[in-house]
């Protein structure tokens, strides 16, 4: 009647259902948390060059360089169902060629337990800011926004925009010399 096999089976099945139930409760407990918070972004220096883009079309494209400051305190975003934050800084603009362009110029992974107070001064971008064509020179409205993608232990994967963004314009002349 109660062989070793059936006892083992019962324990295993019960463990699995309890784990599933707890995971689901963990997911429910953080379903309605508001993950928005403030950020301050500023650009220190902005230049644009015209360089052949060998990573894509090989044609001369606009390549933006910028140095930025970034402040945000994300400590309170962490709760028991946040494993990791994936931060990314997006430059969003529009050109005659493309109605919407979004380029991620910097990103960072913050695991739970790591320092989540960001205070960066004069940071270089992590990725090249290539435009798809020549739409950066003299572009009047490029918006930088910090966003984060929340990676939970189990649950949804929301992407959140920070409150606060920074708009800047590119100079109307290319820089010829090497930077």
């Amino acid at each position: 009647m109660h062989s070793l096999l059936s006892r083992g089976n019962a324990i295993l099945a019960y463990t699995l259902s309890v784990l599933a139930c707890l995971t689901f409760l963990c997911f429910l407990s953080t379903l309605f948390v508001d993950y928005r918070t403030n950020s301050t972004i500023n650009t220190v220096k902005v230049i644009v060059k015209s360089v052949p883009d060998f990573s894509a079309s090989r044609e001369r494209s606009d390549l933006g360089f910028l140095i930025f400051d970034l402040q945000a305190n994300l400590t309170h975003l962490f709760n028991w169902n946040v494993k990791q934050l994936f931060l990314y800084l997006t430059a969003e603009y529009s050109t005659p060629n493309n109605i919407l362009s979004q380029v991620v110029i910097w990103d960072k992974i913050i695991l739970r337990g790591e320092n989540a107070v960001l205070d960066f001064k004069s940071m270089n971008t992590k990725y090249y800011f290539w435009d798809d064509g020549n739409g950066l020179k003299g572009n009047q409205n490029v918006t930088l926004t910090l966003s984060w993608n929340i990676i939970p232990n189990a649950g949804l994967l929301p992407s959140i925009f920070a409150i606060g963004h920074h708009s800047f314009q590119f100079p109307s002349d290319y820089v010829q010399s090497r930077v």
């Binding site: 990314y88 493309n98 919407l100 990725y127 290539w130 798809d132 993608n149 994967l157």
Partner: peptide
């Protein structure tokens, strides 16, 4: 949109890839 995690298929590969969108251009 940028920052989303997409699962995409590439010609000549059987297994779909799970990666994040890095840059994006949308035409009119």
């Amino acid at each position: 949109r940028v920052g989303e995690i997409v699962v995409f298929k590439v010609e000549g590969r059987d297994i779909p890839i799970v990666h994040r969108v890095l840059k994006l251009h949308e035409k009119r």
